[in-house]
Simulated scan of single mutants.
Amino acid sequence: MASFWARVPSDYLTRAQQFTKTLHHELYPAVDPSKPELSLPGKVVIITGASRGIGADGFAVSFAQAGVKGLVLVARDADKLNETVSKVHATNPAVEVLPVVADVADENAVALVYAQCEAKFGHADILINNAGIVKANGALPGDVKPADWWRNIEVNGKGTFLMMHALVNSLPTLDTPVTIINITSGAAWHSPVPMLSGYAISKLVALQEAAYFAACYKNITAFAVHPGLVRTDMTHDSMMHMDSQPPELVGGLAVWLSHPHALFLNGRVVANTWDVDELMARKEEILSGKKLTIGLFGTFGPEQFE
């Protein structure tokens, strides 16, 4: 893996997956969560993987800047989770914070997350499925331990589903609107990278879960967000020279997606680096086809043989 990334330009990832003419590597005005027009008063947000990385420094801080009513912060590390609580209160002391120690791959633990959320806030309005792992990096899928490979699916796929499933069943009615943001990866739709098979496939699961829940429930607006390369302790050393984005950029995008103006992207993939104003300008183009969705390419149907 190291030799591959050493050979590619630093902007390889963003250029290979470019959809808008303008690409962003810093927070920009359109997605600035401190803007009054992006405020989210009264909203309750659940953020998984909230103890570090983009969960702590991106989503938690950005939604606090947007003035939400409450944050339910979920992670497995209690000490790190309390550090995130401090960051939130330093950003906006008015936000009520509920830290919950839980493994999202455990169905009983997920049930307790929602029970505590209901007891303190009632139902949640926004769910950020950010918890994720990268395990079993091998030269080929057959070179890794099956249990390690499958753990990617358990957390990134099953854990995301459990949080979405429990959210639906926690709502007062199926007319109650909610927004779901699943964190995916460019690896989920890019040409196969053999050494990341478990991670890439698990992130494809999370991507398609957003599409399916959006299709199945009229009250759910769901997105699969590719955060770009945000340097965390999950970033491989060989990729440290690649262009990266700060946590606050994906945090600001998540806030922007939590408003009605983003409905046209429901069930679709959105990359952190894409310019949202340019996406808005291409709204009809995106809606008229299957842009920003996953599909099988080819010519299908009996008509082709007539």
Rank of each mutant, 00 (worst) to 15 (best):
102 A>W: 10
104 V>K: 00
104 V>W: 02
104 V>L: 00
105 A>M: 04
105 A>R: 08
105 A>Q: 07
105 A>W: 09
105 A>D: 08
106 D>P: 02
107 E>R: 12
109 A>S: 01
109 A>W: 02
110 V>R: 00
111 A>G: 03
113 V>S: 03
116 Q>N: 10
117 C>R: 10
117 C>I: 09
118 E>M: 12
119 A>E: 11
119 A>S: 06
119 A>T: 00
121 F>I: 05
123 H>P: 09
125 D>Y: 03
125 D>K: 00
126 I>F: 13
126 I>R: 11
126 I>E: 11
127 L>I: 01
127 L>G: 02
128 I>F: 07
129 N>G: 07
129 N>Y: 01
129 N>V: 05
129 N>K: 05
129 N>S: 09
131 A>C: 07
133 I>F: 08
133 I>T: 14
133 I>S: 02
133 I>M: 07
134 V>R: 14
134 V>Q: 15
135 K>Y: 10
135 K>G: 11
137 N>C: 15
137 N>E: 15
138 G>V: 00
138 G>A: 13
140 L>T: 14
141 P>W: 09
141 P>A: 05
142 G>L: 09
142 G>E: 08
142 G>F: 02
143 D>A: 14
143 D>I: 04
143 D>W: 13
144 V>P: 01
144 V>I: 10
144 V>Q: 06
145 K>Y: 03
145 K>N: 13
146 P>W: 14
146 P>L: 12
147 A>W: 10
147 A>L: 14
148 D>S: 12
150 W>P: 04
150 W>Q: 12
151 R>H: 12
151 R>Y: 14
152 N>D: 13
152 N>W: 10
154 E>W: 02
154 E>Q: 14
155 V>S: 06
155 V>K: 10
155 V>W: 06
156 N>H: 12
156 N>Y: 06
157 G>C: 04
157 G>Y: 00
159 G>E: 06
162 L>I: 05
162 L>V: 06
164 M>S: 13
165 H>M: 07
166 A>M: 05
167 L>K: 00
169 N>W: 09
170 S>Y: 11
173 T>P: 09
173 T>N: 12
174 L>K: 15
174 L>W: 13
174 L>N: 11
175 D>N: 06
175 D>S: 11
176 T>S: 07
